[in-house]
């Protein structure tokens, strides 16, 4: 565990979270949420929680992103905030 790596990834995680919440396009929000999940996966691999990192990579970054995109495709991309 290298704490510099930890600090850098944590900063990226928070940036991705804020971007996913503020972006004015739902498709973009879904993609940014996928990036956020992947950053978390890196963070957990760095913290030694390999099983959790594996689950997050397949579930969070893979399947949830697909679900978001499918839902946005079936509804609308536009949003007011």
């Amino acid at each position: 565990m290298i704490w510099q790596v930890d600090l850098a990834i944590l900063a990226l995680v928070v940036i991705c979270a804020i971007a996913a919440v503020t972006v004015r396009d739902l498709l973009g929000a879904g993609i940014l949420f996928g990036a956020y999940s992947f950053m978390l996966c890196l963070l957990w691999a760095a913290m030694g929680a390999v099983d959790v990192a594996f689950t997050e990579a397949s579930v969070g970054a893979g399947v949830s992103t697909v679900f978001f995109i499918a839902a946005v495709f079936r509804t609308t991309r536009r949003t007011k905030d």
Partner: peptide, 28 residues
Amino acid sequence: VVAHGHHSPGGGFQGGVILGASLILVAL
């Protein structure tokens, strides 16, 4: 991943999700 979950990271949840994702890839 399902079968080797005893010795390396992995197990039923991850393997099942990857299997499902491969079939979703076909749909995509």
